[in-house]
Design a protein around this nucleic acid. Structure first.
Lengths: 357, 357
DNA sequence: GTGAAAGCGCTAACAC
DNA sequence: GTGTTAGCGCTTTCAC
């Protein structure tokens, strides 16, 4: 209601004068410090209301040395082209927006935003997809505009985690870093996810089980496959035909075609993410293989793609929003106690049974 | 490299001492103000390098009264449940993350981030999906943490545009507000989009043309339909069977079923967004109607859904990233000259021909 | 062309 | 329990 465009918004001083107390007292009331007489609290609160006072963040930050803001950094390697973020905008179109347009990242943001706003905080969105952009991120953080960084790394060879840690910036990663870095992270028990998929396919009576994996230089892909293989071995399946994809729909189609060529007998399939699974479904339909009757398909992520497929995808759910919330909690904790040693929190996946398997 | 965790990072004072000049001079060099002897500039720059100085944003903001940050606000009405943001996470699951997980919103973020970072700025992400959250947004902006707001409104009855304008917060909307508000916005020429779809279907020789519309309380839906109808009328089609959806996949399926029931003769279809079109495709396939031979389908948006469909969707492309970039440009302009009167910038859609029509 | 000095609005010792 | 006071690090007149 009050006019922000006016000469100047009211300051602590104004409120203090109005209330007939000192700035310090007003400050105490605002910051919820006890030691203030209830009746005076009332007077102050009334003065705040009548003046329309709003604290100035810059002034506060200057003295508290806190921005009360965190950065949400989506980070790739030198070039572009997303991995898990492989929601392509067109064949061969290395579209810049790719990373952010990925619903997977959207789920992360959702978890972060939802957690932060309870603390009246909000994330600053940053894209670090080039050397330059990475420098910008570091400089931005060093300027103190944010108290720390939530880092979602797309590429295995992303240098940002190390850079940030070296610069002394508090940060928490969304997944275990490929190279060991003394930093906190949240992650999924990807192996367990693979096991879940294997158990489900076996329970469905599948005999010829194969997999379309993610890029094998990504830890998550390796782990999903390893868990899947181990569980199958335990069920008496010593060998799992595999085809490597890169998390995009097109790569799922390619991998499915290749797999069908080499192993036409396949009747059970684990695909390392939903988007590739959707591609696999396309190819199976073209080839006249019924899903789930001829081939049972299990995806991974439980993304929106899983729901928009027909048949709807049975898939391994990552609790991405919860993971993101926990990542945020860890960061805030770390900002409060910069000394503490890094921790990790691992989440369990769950199988979501739909029509495809 | 320098240790941020150390006692305190270097200040202007430190640099000044190192360079043997005054704070003012260092400040001038940093802010690129002339009137500084080139040789002294060099000395200062060297001092900056050796001290590892980084300006403190809070201190700067305090005196410039600029945050050099903008807010990107995704705003719904009281409850949740997205319109254009209808990328549902499950039938009947009013998932909070919905809005942010929508690739449409992702494209907007991408455009915004991409534009801002050239100015070394980054957006603060805020979700305003409840009365409380809306208050938080206003308060946050009034605290001066951001210089203005980019507003992406999902619902027709969103009160935020008016609130923000009334509070004197510079802002720019992503689409024309339903109720007249003196505020700048960018938008698409939705009517032209409808016309594009109509012309294309007619050119493909379709005789029985129908439409699945978006929610008709949304201006964009109305305009897309109006443009579509007008163009068809010009081609001698006086009547267009319609079914209303709500931008979700499921609603597309429902609408398609209803349409097929009432108008089995349909051979051409315009769907107001790609996600509903994907749903329509599912139903058509179930019913044994070949696309595009039996029924030609044109979508809207050119989202990732259009590419993940089979057949791939012919659709009307919105240049969302460019629109978002322009929206950002308008906001920055407005922040610089708060007096200027509002403007609007309307973008033209383009037909992207793929397999479905 | 450069320096000195006055704040920006707030918090946090420290006195009382 | 409350007021006084000293800055936080920066920009920006205003002298020189």
């Amino acid at each position: 209601m009050s006019d922000r465009a006016a000469k100047g918004s009211p300051t602590l001083e104004d409120v203090a004068r109005e209330a007939g107390v000192s700035r310090a007292t007003v400050s105490r009331v605002i910051n919820g410090i006890r030691n203030v007489d209830p009746s005076i609290q009332d007077v102050v609160r009334r003065a705040i209301a009548t003046t329309g006072y709003v604290p100035n963040r810059a002034a506060r930050s200057l003295v508290t040395r806190r921005a009360d803001t965190v950065a949400l950094v989506v980070s790739g390697a030198g070039a572009d082209e997303g991995g898990e973020a492989g929601d392509e905008d067109g064949p061969g179109t290395p579209f810049r927006g790719q990373l952010l347009a990925d619903p997977f990242f959207g789920r992360i943001s959702a978890g972060v935003v939802d957690f932060l706003r309870r603390r009246a905080m909000h994330p600053v969105l940053m894209l670090a997809d080039s050397t330059d952009a990475r420098k910008q991120v570091v400089s931005y953080l060093r300027q103190g505009h944010a108290d720390g960084a939530l880092l979602v790394s797309i590429h295995a060879d992303d240098p940002l985690p190390e850079t940030l840690v070296a610069a002394g910036v508090p940060c928490v990663l969304f997944a275990r870093p490929p190279r060991p870095v003394p930093v906190s992270y949240v992650d999924l028990a990807h192996r367990d996810g693979g096991r879940l998929a294997a158990d489900h396919l076996v329970a469905r009576g599948r005999q010829h089980i194969a997999s379309i994996t993610g890029p094998l230089d990504v830890l998550a892909s390796q782990d999903r496959l390893a868990g899947f293989r181990d569980a199958l071995a335990r069920h008496g399946h010593p060998y799992v035909p595999c085809e490597e994809g890169n998390f995009t729909l097109e790569s799922g189609e390619r991998a499915m075609s290749a797999l069908l060529e080499r192993h036409p007998e396949v009747d059970g399939l684990f695909v390392a993410n939903d988007l590739m699974a959707q591609g696999a479904l396309h190819v199976l339909r073209e080839r006249g293989r019924a899903v789930p009757d001829d081939v049972a398909v299990v995806g991974f992520d439980d993304s929106s793609a899983a729901l928009s497929c027909r048949p709807a995808l049975t898939t391994v759910r990552q609790p991405v929003e919860e993971m993101a919330a926990e990542m945020t909690r860890l960061l805030l904790e770390r900002v409060d106690q910069p000394g503490a040693r890094p921790t990790s929190v691992i989440f369990e996946p769950a199988l979501v049974a739909r029509q495809s398997a």
